[in-house]
Design a protein around this nucleic acid. Structure first.
Lengths: 161, 161
DNA sequence: AATAAATACGTGTATATACATTTAATTTGG
DNA sequence: CCAAATTAAATGTATATACACGTATTTATT
């Protein structure tokens, strides 16, 4: 008989070896930073077998979202999670691996249009399968609690003017 | 009359130009990554006037926590939020700025013990004042909601075995 | 139309992460 | 007690972030 077990997440206190926090809000800030690092590490592990980094995967996903339409660098950048991502340089690496193609736009020669190649799509689909599999299996958070989490995360970004 | 106003946080959908998410959990994952980036960007702005990066500030805080005790590189690393931080290299930069001192441990010559200098403490205290000021003013999240947020973040890291 | 301003992208530099390898010191096991 | 294993830190390399700056092109202004 197969028995499901759940590993208790390592408490933040253990993870960063600190027990005293100025407040729960302060702890939450550190917790968000730690959880983001943890999430990135988890996906990086999966993506490694496909020779992709987290950021390269993200760019491929963005391009696939518009496929077969092309996207210029600025459009890709506006959809990146980390807003200071240097998209031209990430595209450099994807181009070397022949996962995307880069061309000067004929409508506006300042723009570079990027297209995901067939190889890019194939690799993205294979890796997305694995990523989604993990996503659906790994996270034990019920949908309604995820809704709450999303609300709280929005609230923490509310700033006084 | 001074009137307090609160800027509504930019919705995740706007921030990353996406409207469709596979689920609320999937959205929450992207939301955590985005919020972590946003938080880091906010502190980086404050720390810039002190010539510190987020990571250098973090190392100084860790050293101050044990001061006047010394800490070895491994102990500092175990308290870092991002577990793959390359502490020797961050210490290189702090040493150049004379904010820390580095010596070989006499008890175990493999270890390097690091001490925060008086200049380091002064800079840390000045920057912490500004950082805490922002923290207490900026975040509009009530303590009890921060407790919930911390619980949910712990839950998302629960994994099936 | 000619010039100025703005825009898109690429590139340079400093810092950081991720991870493998090297070196020196210490611990362990025969 | 010594060889092997382990440990701590430093270092090398690839990738990414943060940000300034340069260049080409387009748009706006006079």
């Amino acid at each position: 008989m197969y028995i499901h077990t759940f590993a208790l997440a390592m408490k933040l206190e253990q993870a960063i070896q600190s027990t005293k926090f100025k407040s729960e809000v302060h702890k939450a800030v550190l917790h968000i930073l730690y959880t983001a690092w943890w999430l990135k590490t988890q996906s990086a592990k999966e993506l490694k077998e496909f020779g992709l980094t987290h950021e390269q995967y993200n760019v491929l996903r963005i391009l696939k979202g518009k496929y077969p339409e092309q996207m210029c660098v600025r459009d890709v950048a506006s959809r990146m999670i980390e807003k200071n991502s240097n998209v031209p340089r990430i595209v450099d690496r994807l181009e070397l691996k022949k996962l995307v193609e880069r061309n000067t736009s004929q409508l506006d020669k300042r723009e570079t249009v990027i297209t995901i190649t067939k190889e890019g799509i194939a690799l993205l689909e294979a890796s997305t399968l694995v990523m989604d599999e993990r996503m659906s299996k790994q996270f034990q958070l019920p949908e309604e609690e995820a809704v709450t989490l999303n609300l709280l995360l929005e609230k923490i970004r509310e700033i006084e003017e």
